[in-house]
Design a protein around this nucleic acid. Structure first.
Lengths: 414, 414
DNA sequence: AATCTTATGTATATTATCATACATAAGTAT
DNA sequence: ATACTTATGTATGATAATATACATAAGATT
């Protein structure tokens, strides 16, 4: 019996998630690679890829790759087929942006942020700003795919909330994801800023490195780890909290956490600023310290160098414990360059076993202030395109496409 | 057209690997759970499971699970359907065993081991002992499925060799896997003993814990980590090497690694034995120390307690870095019980952030000397039954089954 | 004992996927 | 230009897997 849509080419997006995931994850850049990587037959891959191309989510680039015979066409996620909303809550400002799927910034805003305003008011503010950004992005970039938030405190990623007493009083245990999902019906992620900077650095510069450590040395200190190619969060999301590892000594300085001798109290921006103030300079933040370093003030140079060695002490502990193949130093004090690096390298090479340092690189970060913002976008994209979720993402494009072809609907009516 | 085997029930093992993997991994214990966990249709699951049951690899147990209606039959890997050969190379002896798939020991031997004999001679010795063990196991337990080795040194798991200068001179970079595979045509794994003890402890007692740290305090010191439910090895397999983290002080003792102030030189078995010797006791190894502790010698009690605090210092660093939810203390000195634990707990709770210690348990290990041996078996089994490898494992049972049914062969001849 | 619930097997028609083969495309090497 | 290589699409019949529906099983509940 002939059906109404007989002869209609097959373009369901059913099952195309696997293909999409391979393209998004960089595991397959061409049809030939998709064939090999997916294990599916040529027919199936062709069919699903056509559906993805028709949906607009995937596009064929102009680029080709040499193969010995006919060059292969390079496929890519169509960056303009959707957009994300991301926000980085800093200690004084909130940086918000709409991003395409590159991810690249489409539009951005900055809001003032007061630690005093609780999560309720702040999330409402963010929601309003998101609405404005979305209105603009929606016209050019179609679907709104998700939200990702960066916070300057420990975050329990699974539960989506701030954990532990922190610089954000009142946020502890507040259900951020729930609040945002109630207003925006999209996936929502919340993560700590240092972890997001780690993700950004890993994705952009060292995608092939499986085990790396990112250390942020700014006014405060923190670190993030990539273990086995994935961000390692620990049981409560508190992994990488190296700022409060203690080294006891007679002159152990008091830390802002209330203990004595923490690394942070010896080598973070605020500690160096404290020491510079004691020597008559005006300094409070990491930026003040770096300003003095750039003016080549001997005291600042000396203190930064010493901080490098102190940080090197902790890092050498971390190296012994997790055995990374790469360490990236970021944050404001990383602008001190070799002044900071040399001390770190000195201690790590001195303290760790040759085995652990044999193939270890220690480099400076190149990502800027916006590392956390982009990291938030990468985190979200990774999840949207993950095999487990990609099919759900496609459903939206699928139903939309059906709506967009009234001809197909008419064809079914006799 | 009628085929020769028409009407013959379908029992290919093709594709049954996924099912097998779910059963072996504990993700599905019954047909109903297999249906849900695999996402396959009832027909397909029934068919593949029948093939697995026919192959003998999976069996139906007597146990049932209540379900509200008809109770569900519990399925399990048939422990007697194959066997493994494992060996634990210690500093003076090699402990070898044939194990079933429980894993449980079927037969075992011990060989004397001299560090002086190189890898060539030792592996030949091991091979000979394996041959003897295999002959026995083969009669009762069918297929020989793989080899797994435990070594008391850092091991590069991927490459299957000892790395770095260690207690085993001459083994550095020697291709252990290659050598054994040339003699036995089965999968071969090599891993560090502490990592294997970690795996054993995790599998047996804490399978639900995703992030844990295992610390072995014996004559020497080492640790293993489970991160995200899997063993974490680091870039060169050297992760967890916490014995040589340094604490500098005026009286920093010289470590056997050549540096000053390593934890090991302060708190491992040999260090306590050294201090006891200086006080007139006869002690060399961790066992000697524990003997004196069990005789309630005040000096031994005091030194063990102090060692606990020192080890607590390092552990608190590890906790800050990887944020585990469980710490297990093993090795000979763990027999010191609370004497050891209290110092560790004291320092960890004093030094770490409340967030990290809120849900942290610190307990003593219960696995014995044979932890590494069983860990080796678990490691191998995990890999044999992993989704990616399970199909390959089945091929052997499949072809064997065809051989075993001459009736089926006859049926094809007209 | 009758009923309810969930587990489990199987027949049927339908659908999805595959292997194979062939045809064409688009470069490089000669 | 011609041959060679690999990429890519599609037709075809074969195979695998699915949904659906029904039948039976085996314990708990009433």
């Amino acid at each position: 019996m002939a059906r109404a849509d007989e002869g209609h080419e097959k373009t369901t997006l059913d099952g195309a998630g696997g293909i999409l995931s391979l393209i998004a994850g960089g595991e397959a850049a061409s049809r030939a690679e998709l064939l090999a990587a997916s294990g599916l037959s040529r027919v199936t891959v062709t069919q699903r890829l056509n559906a993805l191309l028709a949906s607009g989510l995937v596009r064929e680039t102009e680029k080709t790759l040499p193969s010995g015979g006919r060059p292969t066409r390079v496929l890519a996620i169509n960056a303009a087929s959707g957009f994300l909303l991301v926000a980085n809550i800093g200690e004084t400002h909130i940086h918000l942006a709409a991003m395409d799927l590159t991810p690249a910034i489409l539009a951005q805003t900055t809001l003032p942020f007061s630690v005093a305003s609780g999560p309720e008011a702040t999330l409402t503010q963010i929601g309003d700003a998101f609405d404005a950004l979305a209105a603009e992005a929606e016209r050019t970039h179609g679907f709104f795919l998700g939200i990702s938030l960066s916070l300057p405190t420990p975050v329990d990623f699974k539960r989506g909330c701030v954990v532990g007493p922190s610089v954000l009083p009142g946020w502890d245990e507040f259900d951020i994801i729930g609040r945002l999902k109630a207003r925006f019906d999209v996936p929502v992620y919340v993560e700590n800023d240092v972890n997001l900077m780690t993700i950004c650095e890993h994705k952009r510069r060292f995608p092939a490195v499986d085990d790396m450590l990112f250390v942020k040395v700014g006014t405060g200190m923190g670190s993030g780890m990539i273990a086995g190619g994935r961000l390692f969060r620990g049981a409560q999301g508190a992994a990488g909290d190296i700022g409060h590892i203690q080294f006891l000594s007679d002159d152990a300085p008091l830390c802002r956490c209330g203990k004595f001798g923490c690394v942070e109290a010896r080598a973070a921006g605020w500690a160096i600023a404290r020491d510079l103030s004691a020597r008559g300079f005006r300094a409070e933040t990491a930026r003040d310290v770096i300003d003095l370093v750039e003016q080549r003030k001997p005291e600042a140079l000396m203190l930064l160098r010493a901080a490098g060695r102190t940080i090197g002490e902790v890092i050498s502990d971390v190296v012994s414990i997790i055995n990374p193949s790469l360490i990236v130093i970021g944050g404001t004090l990383a602008r001190g360059g070799d002044l900071m690096l040399s001390g770190i390298r000195e201690l790590v090479y001195q303290r760790c076993l040759p085995l652990a340092t044999r193939d270890l690189s220690i480099v400076l970060s190149t990502v800027r202030e916006d590392g956390a913002l982009f990291g938030a976008a990468y985190l979200l994209l990774d999840d949207l395109f993950a095999p487990a979720r990609a099919d759900r993402l496609l459903e939206r494009y699928d139903t939309a496409r059906h709506r967009q072809t009234p001809a197909a609907v008419r064809r079914q009516a006799p």
